[in-house]
Every structure is written in structure tokens, then in C-alpha cells.
Design a protein around this nucleic acid. Structure first.
Lengths: 110, 110
DNA sequence: CGGGAGGCCTTGACAATCTAGGTATCGGTG
DNA sequence: CACCGATACCTAGATTGTCAAGGCCTCCCG
């Protein structure tokens, strides 16, 4: 239905961090939230999501804790660490610069 | 000096096509032009560029012809095919949607 | 003569994503 | 009751595209 999401490359981490910046969430909810708030423009495959979460946890930019979801299911909640906030700031800035550069090239009508 | 350009993933093809949309250029000039017009925000490594050009040529969205550069050197000039123009349109649209979605998530201050 | 810039190319490593599976629980429906 | 879809997690393997680092050749300039 929608795009090749290969674009995500290098962006997923930032998206996850940003999603968590409004409070802890479990993995499934992160994917849901991203897809919902972008009206399906972003599709987060579970095969990308969980490895990404694991990476981020290992680098201590997020931390995990088992809990119970809104629907009463066992779920692992992730929260941003201070390092995570710092990294989010930096990644966001990188994205902004990159996106601006690409848009400057791509969007002008020739 | 500048960013990790890993972001390029999936975007390089579109950037090349767009660069060629203003007329044939040789590989080296494509990289130069992209870096210049983005003030160095985009850095195109030759190890990414030439494989990309080869891919695009094989898919017949660009075609190559040997010629002579402005400086009198042997150089391979690439030109957009009709299929290339179509693909450029499509890729540009995809990028726009993707970038809009990511920006919508990433840029709001929380 | 040496070196840098212009030009092209390739090999191998690496990193991130996707595909496609798997597990388990719960709620609703035929 | 049997089943299926949604919720929730996880993983192995293939794929892909980028990067790093090299090599090649020619021209020009100091």
C-alpha cells in the first residue's frame, strides 16, 4: 500500500527515541504510535524494531523494564535515559540538516 | 567534519537522477555538484557513486556514453532516459512523503 | 621529478533492514 | 468448542547499500 521503507535506514533510532521522549512505552506501542501519527506513512516492521530496541538498550540510551500493558498483557517498557535525550537532540539536528540538503536538491522543479 | 552520511541509504539514486535531470554529466561531476549545491552537507563517496551509477544504468533509467570532460579528460557521461524521468518523479514523491512523516515526528519540541 | 587534481573502478567489510518464521495469551464469533 | 485476529515478544537468514581503502591513468604545476 505504501512506500519502500528502506528509507528508514539510520532514522529509525531517532524515531524511537523521539517516541519515547513523551514517556515510557512498550515496543509494540512504539510501532503503533509511529504508524498512527504518520497516517501509515511510516511502517515499522517488527524485525527492524526489536533489534533496534536491543541496540539502543545496549548502548544505554534507553532502558527496559517488564510490566503490564494497558490490555493486561506482559510487555517490556522502554524509557529514555539522559544519554538518550542527548542523543535524540543530536540525531534530530543531523536529520534536519540532512533532510534540508536532500530537499534542496530534490524538490525544486526543473 | 560533517555527518554520518549513512542516511543516504535509498536516497542516493534519487539524488543522482535529479542531478542528471538538468543535463548529462559524468560521474565525478555528479558528486561535485551534489556536494557543492548542498555546501558539503551531502558527501558522495566514490565507492557509493560508481556502483549506484552501474545499478541505474543496468535498470535503464540512465544511459552512459564515453566522452571528454570540460578539462579534456576521458569521462563517462550519463543521461536520464524517459524511464529515468518517470522514476525520478516517483522517487521524489516518495521522499517528500517520507521526509514529511519523519519531520512530523521528529521536529516538534516536546 | 613529485604531487595533487581530475577521472574511473573494484574488493571486502559492515550495518541495518526486511522476510518469514516462531511463541503465547486473550477476546470474540461462528 | 474451535478458530481467528489482535496483542506482544523474539530470532535467523538473506539482502542491500554504503563505506573504507585500495588501484589505475593522465594532466598540469611547482
Amino acid at each position: 500500500m505504501s512506500d519502500k521503507t528502506e528509507h528508514l535506514h539510520g532514522t529509525l533510532d531517532a524515531l524511537i527515541l523521539k517516541t519515547l521522549s513523551r514517556g515510557p512505552l512498550h515496543g509494540y506501542a512504539i510501532a503503533r504510535w509511529l504508524e498512527d501519527t504518520t497516517d501509515g506513512a511510516l511502517v515499522i516492521e517488527e524485525g527492524s524494531l526489536y533489534p533496534a530496541l536491543y541496540r539502543l538498550e545496549k548502548r544505554r540510551v534507553i532502558e527496559a523494564e517488564w510490566g503490564t500493558s494497558e490490555l493486561g498483557r506482559r510487555a517490556k517498557f522502554y524509557a529514555l535515559t539522559p544519554r538518550g535525550r542527548a542523543e535524540l537532540r543530536q540525531r534530530t539536528e543531523e536529520w534536519a540538516r540532512f533532510a534540508a540538503a536532500v530537499s534542496r536538491v530534490l524538490l525544486p522543479v526543473t
